[in-house]
Amino acid sequence: MSSHTQHEQTGGFEPKIVAFVCNWCTYAGADLAGTSRMEYKPNVRIIKLPCTGRIDPLFIIKAFEKGADGVLVSGCHPGDCHYTTGNYHARRRWIAFKNLMDFVGIDSQRLHFSWVSASEAIKWVDLVNNITDEVKKLGPFVEYKSLGDRQ
């Protein structure tokens, strides 16, 4: 399957982070970071959904299957959802899903949740930088990637 990104020059491991974000807040926040020419770690791959309520746990599982080393899920702050309550529903789902992932032994440092509004470009930049560093320290998600390999 897909292997992690190697930077030839440094030989260091560069994690792949997949970010599932909602269109109205976090995507706009990330966009603001871009248009404001803020620099941040290029490890994140953004996938835009209409709302956090649209993010099925299977998306996260699929991301890990396809070689993600870390996943970030982010949307509007409570009260700010474009569809009023999508993020409240999402939050419930995350509570269950996060506990399930913990229970099967997936490191909680590989799965992050956040609220980032359209104006919080700085928060987005810090978040991505921090998560990238954290996952970098953990190294590639070999446990998941090697599922099915013969020992």
């Binding site: 309550t85 409240y88 419930r92 789902r93 995350w94 509570i95 949740f113």
Partner: peptide, 16 residues
Amino acid sequence: PPMIIFNMEDTEDFIK
């Protein structure tokens, strides 16, 4: 069923 409803006060100590 609890997963089709929500509470404004649901915990979010794990959400950054």
